[in-house]
Write a protein that binds this DNA or RNA. Structure first.
Length: 592
RNA sequence: GCGCCCAUAGCUCAGCUGGAUAGAGCAACGGUUUUCUAAACCGUAGGUCUUAGGUUCGAAUCCUAAUGGGCGUACCA
């Protein structure tokens, strides 16, 4: 904020001329003035008492006087203990609204020329998406939006985990117990159908283990020798050997899953520019192993396995290639990281992955750095906490998950019930109603998940429905709808006038101050990769507007200048609300 | 064992690089609708910021330790 910079440099001058001391700009703490005091901008003056050798009050008064004399926009100041509060001229704030906030591209940075990849979602194709994936998807999408608003060219990528033993499990179970069931014959969504057989497999596996235990096997033996697990392993070998029958089944079942995921993604409102498939990438990484061996970053043990020693960095020794020459997880990830960089040459790359993989990414990035990859510095693991149920962790295998599709259905249904209860859809067509319910239901869900800092774990109680009142998505959507309603009554077409009132009310000024923060909030959210900061900002903004709306009439303002000003102010607020929510992937309605 | 993360009101969460009497929402209680949408607004009540030390003019915030919870430490992904 320009005025803040002005104040800071004037305080430096003031301290220089009053106390003959040079201070650094970053030593000066500037903050918003608390609502209960007069003023908009506050400087903390405690640190200056060292140089002034006077009380905080005297020091503040002297500096305040100096700043007031040197900056036109500063109309007044007051000192409370070590806090120097400046009042900024109303004209400054109205100019601010008129010249920047009201512009349609407000908050959007110029292209920075930097390219960044955000990899998120990364599903397994053996089961439908659940609430944990929803958090991942919303986070990834929102972070991508935020980075884009900050001027980045963003590439959204999805690395699909489409092969491996877990995929074979559903395939095997379908083969043995599926009776050729298809999405068409069963009426099930493709991913749900495949997920059903993943559960069937687990049930059968457990049954066989129990049988083996009963006939005297140890638990370890039982787990290893149960017929279905051996068959699944055989199937994986056949897959790797390109067995046509297995591959055909694999392609077919994955096709069902992709169709199902496609629907879920569409409803969630997320998308991807680039898909990577593990079936294409799982053999990558061998070149990097050779590279590392040649440069001495890796070493080979007697059995032929390849390792890296990270003990000097406080980590462990890590296997990067098995003795039989096959890859492990990190081998693939090394290769995939290189592939992604070769494809896009991006400056930075974000991996949106749960915090149970913190160690893995620490190791991955460290290895790439040791291999001398210049781009390794730009890698970042956006680690987020798990979504837990009151009963504990969600487990797809055991069917104890909150399914993404079911949850969205429920949210939309609740939105419908709630809206009908309130009788708010007069004059809506059926299509408009459906769109509104979806907007509100998903708005509630998305806001619920995004308002919490990513790294915190989240508790979701299916028995307690997600709120539609208070600190929620619908609260903000409602605020937007009310503004649009007022604007449409006034036949508002865009900025009305430059003839703004000389004197602002306290709430008007507060609103502009809040709106003026928007670009800083976007920047901070990008820096921290934290949609929660946007969510909390837009909630505060909506709350403040509601207070204003309640206390000061817009359409029936005393004179035309005030009315026009308030219409512009309301319009700017609606626009910032809409943009902020857009950064969260949440749509806002004009009526609700 | 070792490592990483978390701990703020009954519940769910804010609290920026240390700064004013620690803030919201939900739940509870009370009030506001002849006036722009009451999914709103206003008020009451509710916190020794897990504990103990330390640094500082000043600590929820930084440091150390302890306690509680989560995760990791796989030739699984």
């Amino acid at each position: 904020m320009a005025i803040e910079q002005k104040i800071i440099s004037n305080i430096i001058d003031a301290v220089g001329s009053l106390y003959s001391t040079k201070i650094e700009a970053d030593k000066i703490v500037i903050q918003e003035t608390r609502r209960e005091f007069e003023g908009q901008i506050t400087a903390v003056t405690f640190p200056f008492t060292k140089f002034s050798r006077k009380t905080p009050e005297q020091t503040g008064a002297e500096i305040g006087e100096y700043v007031k004399d040197h900056i036109d926009e500063v109309t007044d100041f007051n000192v409370i203990k070590g806090f120097l509060n400046f009042s900024i001229a109303d004209a400054y704030w109205t100019d601010r609204l008129l010249n920047t906030i009201i512009n349609s591209n407000y908050g959007q940075s110029e292209p920075s020329g930097k390219r960044i990849m955000v990899e998120y979602s990364s599903p397994n194709t053996n089961k439908p998406l659940h609430l944990g994936h929803v958090r991942n998807n919303l986070l990834g999408y929102s972070v991508a939006q935020i980075l884009s608003a900050n001027g980045y060219e963003v590439i959204k990528a999805n690395l699909v985990n489409d092969r491996g033993i877990h995929i074979c499990k559903s395939m095997l179970a379908w083969q043995q117990f599926g009776n050729k069931e298809t999405p068409e014959t069963s009426g099930l969504k493709g991913d749900h159908l495949v997920g059903k057989y993943y559960v069937v497999f687990d049930r059968e596996y457990k049954k066989q283990i129990a049988e083996l235990l009963a006939s005297g096997a140890t638990e370890e033996e039982a787990k290893k020798n149960a017929p279905v697990i051996k068959q699944a392993q055989e199937m994986l070998l056949k897959w790797e050997a390109n067995d046509p029958e297995v591959k055909e089944l694999w392609a077919r079942m994955n096709g069902w899953v992709y169709e199902g995921f496609g629907e879920t993604y569409k409803r969630l409102g997320v998308d991807f520019k680039k898909y990577y498939y593990e079936s294409d990438t799982y053999l990558l990484g061998k070149d990097i192993i050779d590279e590392g061996l040649a440069s001495g970053v890796f070493f080979r043990k007697e059995d032929g396995s390849v390792w890296i020693d990270l003990t000097a960095d406080g980590l462990d020794q890590k296997l990067v290639l098995r003795a039989d020459g096959t890859s492990v997880y990190i081998t693939q990830d090394l290769g995939t990281a290189q592939l992604k960089y070769d494809d896009f040459k991006m400056d930075e790359s974000i991996y949106v992955v749960g915090n149970e993989q913190d160690y893995h990414f620490k190791v991955l990035f460290l290895i790439l750095d040791k291999l001398g990859k210049s781009w390794a510095k730009g890698l970042f693991h956006l680690s987020y906490g798990m979504v837990d149920l009151p009963s504990g962790k969600m487990k797809s295998r055991e069917g104890t998950v909150v399914d993404a599709d079911d949850l969205m259905d429920e949210m939309i249904q609740t939105a419908k019930d709630r809206t009908e209860e309130l009788g708010k859809v007069e004059g809506f067509t059926e299509e408009e109603k459906a769109r509104l319910y979806e907007m509100i239901g998903l708005g509630a869900l998305k806001f619920f998940l995004l308002k919490v800092e990513p790294k915190k774990r989240l508790l979701f109680d299916p028995n307690e429905s997600i709120d539609f009142q208070g600190h929620t998505g619908p609260f903000i959507q409602y605020t937007h709808a009310r503004i649009r309603s007022v604007l449409s009554k006034a036949l508002y077409q865009g900025r009305l006038t430059q003839d703004y009132p000389q004197k602002l009310t306290a709430l008007e000024k507060e609103l502009i101050v809040d709106l003026a923060k928007y670009p800083e909030v976007i920047a901070a959210a990008a820096k921290e990769y934290s949609p929660a900061q946007i969510a909390n900002y837009v909630f505060e903004l909506a709350k403040l507007f509601n207070k204003f709306y309640h206390e000061e009439s817009i359409l029936k303002a005393d004179d035309a200048a005030v009315r026009n000003f308030r219409l512009d102010l309301a319009s700017a607020t609606a626009s910032v609300i809409s943009k902020s929510m857009g950064l969260l992937g949440i749509l806002v309605p004009d009526r609700m």
